[in-house]
Every structure is written in C-alpha cells, then in structure tokens.
C-alpha cells in the first residue's frame, strides 16, 4: 500500500467537499474491494474518503411500495433485515450469500454498485427489480446506472445515497459461483413487478445488464418454457480459465430457468 490521506467524514456534504479538494480521491464504503486493491499496489488514491461515519447513508425502510436501502447498509444487515426478508426475500438471500462473513459485515450495497465489478451480485437485482439509484446529485434508473466494466454513470464527486427497489410480486436470484472466488460466474435475477418480468444478468459479460432476449422469451410470464430456444450472443460473453464464453452463455439460460422456477 502506498501512502495516502485518510479522511473520515460525517456527512454527504463533507464527503463531497473532501473529494473536490483531493488531488485524486476515492470514496470508500466497506473497503472490501478498495483496500485489497490498494494493498496490492494496484490503486494509489491521494485521499481515501471514508463514508463509514455518515449516519444518513444507512438504514432500511419500506415506503410507498418501495424498499429503500441506504447505500452504507452492509450485506449482513440486508440479509438479516426483517423488512427486506418480508418485502423482497430474494434480495435478503442474495445479500446473505455475498463473499464471506467478513465481507458481508463490511461490504455495502452502495459500495458494490458504485464499484460495479462485473461479477458482483447486487447489480443483477438492481436491474431486474427496476430500482432507482439515489445519489447526492440525482436519481438514476438502474439501466442507466451501469455503463461498463467497473464503470457507472456516477461522476467523480457523486455519492450513492440509497437504492429504492419497487416491491415485486415474485423474485428470485440464481448464482453460479466461481469455485475459487465465489463471485458470480453467472448470476441471474428474475423479478415480476407490476405485471412485467425483468431479467438482470451479472457475471456473464463486461457489464451487468437486462437480459432482453430472455425477457422476450418469457413474454411477461413466469414460464421458462421458451428459454432453451433463446440464442445469446456468445461473442459478448466473458471468458476465463473458469468458464468459456460458450459455457457462460449456457449458464445464463440455466440460471434463468432456475430463477423463474424459484419464483413460482
């Protein structure tokens, strides 16, 4: 780890100000990606602005048919939350299976989606549930939020403050884990909300995305009968020592079918 300035802030406004003053600052939520990257000397921000003390960023509530989760709410808190378990049980289960206990007790929803690791779990849920990402500056729809591998619509000094999930009629997440890292080789979140069935896909490609071909095959119904016939663009799939593009494309369909079945 290289030397850096550590800034602990108590409010979103102070965090924004600290970022604007920094030469090459980074916000840190749970630090579960940021700190290992810095330890490996792969990142060297001039300033690390720790959002851990910003009370306004934590909390879980249900308001107007929406589940609202503060950005600094840990995965463990989401997993254990009675509100989440009742409102969107699939989201609680997803959170409860991220990483390991240490990661779940430090890692946060906001940190996960702002980092946008292409193999992270939350982005699939945010997309499939049609969530809205509230930031320090604006509200961003899920589909516009994730723009590329480790890239989002966030500006440098913009902070995710909360995510608002419309309550679905049914939802399920199916993750095919990398046997080493336990990240998603493929993760598929299926949600039926307001009569529409959406599919959020993570791990398969460079960017978490809506599975529009899969959604078309489902036709708004929780019936996986047409999924086998879907042709997915293999050339867009990630490929590594754990899973080739062809295998990933196959797994997207298998995980979709299983998620649809789990919704029933």
């Amino acid at each position: 780890m290289y030397e850096f300035n550590y800034r602990k802030v108590a409010s979103v406004a102070a965090a924004t100000e600290a970022m604007q003053q920094a030469e090459d600052g980074k916000f840190m939520a749970g630090g579960q990606t940021m700190l290992p990257t810095m330890k490996h000397r792969l990142a060297s921000p001039s300033d690390l602005i720790d959002l851990g003390g910003v009370a306004e960023l934590t909390g879980i509530s249900v308001e107007n048919e929406n589940l609202i989760v503060g950005a600094m709410t840990t995965h463990a808190a989401v997993a254990a939350s009675a509100e989440v378990q009742q409102a969107i049980p699939a989201l609680a289960r997803l959170a409860g299976n991220i990483g390991d206990p240490a990661v779940r007790n430090r890692g946060t929803l906001g940190g996960s989606i702002a980092n946008h690791d292409p193999a992270a779990d939350y982005p699939a849920a945010v997309i499939a549930l049609g969530a809205t990402v509230q930031t320090s500056k604006r509200a961003i729809s899920a589909e516009e939020f994730f723009t590329g591998m480790f890239e989002t619509a966030l500006e440098d000094d913009e902070i995710v403050t909360s995510v608002s999930f419309p309550l679905p009629e049914a939802a399920a997440y199916m993750k095919f884990e990398n046997p080493a890292s336990r990240y998603a080789i493929v993760g598929v979140f299926v949600a039926k909300t307001g009569g529409e069935v959406r599919v959020g896909v993570t791990g398969a490609t460079a960017c978490a995305h809506r599975g529009l071909r899969l959604e078309a095959a489902l036709g708004g119904e929780l019936d996986a009968g047409g999924i086998d016939a879907v042709e997915l663009p293999v050339e867009q799939m990630n490929s590594d020592i754990h899973a080739s593009a062809e295998y990933r494309a196959h797994l997207v369909k298998v995980m979709t079918k299983r998620a649809v079945e789990a919704c029933q």
Binding site: N178, P179, A180, S181, Y183, I241, H242
Partner: peptide
C-alpha cells in the same frame, strides 16, 4: 478444484485465491 495454471508466456494465472480454488 485445484489446477495451477500458467499462460503461454509463463505468467501464473492462478496466483491468488480469487483464481486458485
């Protein structure tokens, strides 16, 4: 699970627990 793997240039691909299961 365990397969130590080098690429054709001799770089160790499975050089951490992220890739070595």
């Amino acid at each position: 699970l365990e397969g130590c793997s080098y690429d054709s240039e001799g770089q160790l691909i499975t050089a951490s627990y992220m890739d070595y299961a």
